[in-house]
């Protein structure tokens, strides 16, 4: 049985936030509203990270997804003309996406539930991590020679490539307009 304490209450509230926001995203016809519902949903995910003793990831979640991605989505919406109130568009391939989504959902659910199914008798608590935080450990691991220094540098190259690609694509569009 689930114990009723501050953490479970917080989890319930956050889940309502995440699911409600996600529902808003898919039901609204207004793209800007959709972006804002997404912000709400992502805020809830940041809360999940806090509950999982990963406050650094929570900050990253808010900083990148709300502070940057949501803004970028709205900028993109504004780039397109009169996209804010779309009429219903019939898509003949809806059944294909429905099947894909259901399959993906089943796959994810199985992937999450199966590894912990049957383990841990009632009352047994799985501790995720003894230490809270760990930004310093993360930083040390990122630049350690036997750690993740290679992925760290590759991430930098990836970001550079992303920026160059974005500029090339965006500037070309601009030139065509002119």
């Amino acid at each position: 049985m689930i114990e009723l304490n501050a953490q479970t209450i917080a989890f319930a509230v956050l889940s309502a936030l995440v699911l409600g926001g996600a529902l808003g995203v898919v039901t609204t016809r207004n793209l800007v509203h959709g972006a804002l519902w997404l912000v709400l949903s992502l805020l809830g995910v940041a809360g999940y990270f806090v509950l999982l003793s990963a406050p650094f990831l929570a900050a990253v979640q808010v900083l990148v997804y709300i502070g940057a991605i949501a803004i970028l989505i709205v900028f993109a919406v504004m780039l397109t003309r009169s996209m804010t109130s779309l009429g219903e568009v019939r898509n003949r391939q809806w059944w294909l996406s429905a099947i894909t989504v259901i399959l993906l959902f089943l796959l994810l659910a199985a992937g999450i539930i199966l590894p912990v199914w049957g383990r841990g008798a009632p009352g047994e608590v799985t501790t995720l991590s003894a230490t809270v935080g760990g930004a310093a450990e993360l930083g040390a691991a990122l630049v350690a020679g036997d750690g993740f220094v290679l992925p760290f540098e590759v991430a930098s190259i990836l970001l550079t490539a992303a920026m160059i690609g974005a500029i090339v694509v965006a500037r070309d569009e601009e030139d065509e307009q002119a």
Partner: peptide
């Protein structure tokens, strides 16, 4: 433990609020 990032994260919501107001 991430105090300073908390400030940055909350501050980054600032752009969202401007967008809501203007839009």
């Amino acid at each position: 433990s991430i105090g300073i990032l908390y400030f940055v994260a909350v501050g980054s919501i600032g752009a969202v609020k401007v967008m809501i107001g203007g839009w």
